[in-house]
Design a binder for these strands. Structure first.
Lengths: 209, 209
DNA sequence: GTCTATAATGTGATAGAC
DNA sequence: GTCTATCACATTATAGAC
C-alpha cells in the first residue's frame, strides 16, 4: 500500500458517504456503515454522537460537490457559448464519477428540508446571489447584442441543470425505456451527452444570420 | 357529503399512496398510513399482508400515472412541433397535480430495482417498443425533409423528459437557489414552464430558413 | 480508542375477542 | 371486518471492561 492507514475518522466518513449516498438516510444502517469501514459499530457513536450527526457531516460535504463553485467557470472572459460548453462537459464528467449524487441530494432535500436545511442554509445563501450575477449580466448583454434570442435567466439555467442532472437520477428508467437494460447501449448514450447538452442548448438560444 | 363513505380498502390505498409518495418506502410507517386512513393498524395487514405488498399496489398505480399512455398524444396526424407542445403542456400539468411523483418514482427505482422491477417489468416491456416507434419514424422523416436538424431520437426524448420532470424533483433546490424560498416567485416560474419547455426544444431543433 | 454486551426504542406483523 | 393486546425482531444508542 502506498497510502498510510487512514485515520478511523476518515474511514468512517468515507464509509458513511458511500452507504448514505446509495441508500439514503432512512435506508442506511449504522451496522452497514461500520462493516464498510471495517470497524465496530460502537465506534461510530464514539466519533459521531448519532446517526443524524453523522449524516449531517456527510451531507454537508456532498452538497458542495453537487453544487460546485461555478465561479471558476462562469467568472471568466470566455463567450457564453464557450462557458456553456465547458460547464456541461465538466459537470457531466463530475456526475459520471458520482452517479448516485443527484438522486441522493434530490431525495434528501425533498424528504426533510427541515432537518437538513439548518446544516447548510448558509451555503445556499452564499451561492445564491454572488455566483449568478456575472452570468446573468452576460446573458442580458448577449440578448441585447442579438447573439442569443430573448430568454429568461432562470429558465435557461434550470434547462441546463435539467439536461445535465436528470439522466443520472433517471438512469434505471432510461435503461428500461430505451436500452432494454443493455449497459453498452446506455454507456454510448451517456457519453454523447457530454456534448449533446451544450449542443442542444446553444442550438436553442443562438440567433442565426 | 356528496360521496358515500369509501370502502376501507379504498381509504387504505389512498392513504398509503399519500404517505409512500411523500416519505418513500423506507421512510413510510404503517402507523402513519393507518392514521391517515383513520383506521386501525391491524386492518392494513388484514387487507394487505405486508408493507411490501401494500407498497407494491401503490407503486404499480403510480408508475402508470408517471409514464402515461403517450400513444394518445403521439399517435396522431399532428406535426412534430404540435405534438411536442401538446405533450409538454399536458405532462407538466399532470405533474403539477402530483408534484411528489417524480421524486418518488425516481428514488424508489434507483434504490431497489430488484424488489420493484418484477412488479411492473411487464409494464415497461409494453411501453418500450410500441409507443415510440411512430414518433421515431416521424422524427426521422422530418429530419430528412429539412424541417428539423439531425438529432438522435434517444437524446431528444431524454431532453424533453429532463426539462419536464427535473424541476419538480429539484423544487426545494430551485426554491433556494433562485427564489429565496418565495412561493409566488416560484409559482410564476413554474407556470411559465408549460410553454417554455416546448419553446426551448422547438427553437433547438427547428431549421430556420 | 476500541471492543463486548446490553439497554431502549421503534416498527412490522400476528393472535384472538367481539 | 374491526378492534386490543402483544410478539418478534431490527436498529439506534449506551455502559463498562480493556
Amino acid at each position: 500500500m502506498k497510502q498510510k492507514d487512514k485515520s478511523t475518522e476518515a474511514k468512517i466518513l468515507e464509509a458513511a458517504n458511500k452507504v448514505f449516498v446509495e441508500k439514503g438516510l432512512d435506508g442506511a444502517r449504522m451496522q452497514e456503515i461500520a462493516d464498510e469501514a471495517k470497524i465496530n459499530k460502537s465506534l461510530l457513536h464514539y466519533y459521531y454522537r448519532s446517526k443524524d450527526k453523522l449524516f449531517s457531516e456527510v451531507f454537508q460535504k456532498v452538497i458542495k460537490t453537487f453544487l460546485p463553485d461555478t465561479v471558476k467557470i462562469f467568472d471568466s472572459e470566455k463567450s457564453l457559448f464557450e462557458k456553456i460548453e465547458t460547464f456541461t462537459l465538466e459537470y457531466i464528467t463530475l456526475l459520471e464519477k458520482n452517479p448516485f449524487l443527484p438522486m441522493f441530494v434530490l431525495h434528501e432535500l425533498s424528504q426533510k428540508p427541515i432537518k437538513i436545511t439548518d446544516t447548510f442554509s448558509g451555503f445556499f445563501d452564499n451561492l445564491k446571489q454572488n455566483q449568478f450575477e456575472i452570468l446573468k449580466f452576460q446573458i442580458e448583454k448577449e440578448i441585447q447584442n442579438g447573439i442569443i434570442r430573448p430568454i429568461e435567466f432562470d429558465q435557461l439555467i434550470v434547462n441546463i441543470m435539467s439536461l445535465c442532472i436528470f439522466p443520472f437520477a433517471a438512469k434505471p428508467i432510461l435503461m428500461k425505456l430505451f436500452f432494454g437494460d443493455n449497459k453498452n447501449q446506455y454507456k454510448n448514450f451517456a457519453d454523447k451527452r457530454k456534448i449533446e447538452v451544450a449542443d442542444f442548448v446553444i442550438h436553442s438560444i443562438k440567433v442565426k444570420n
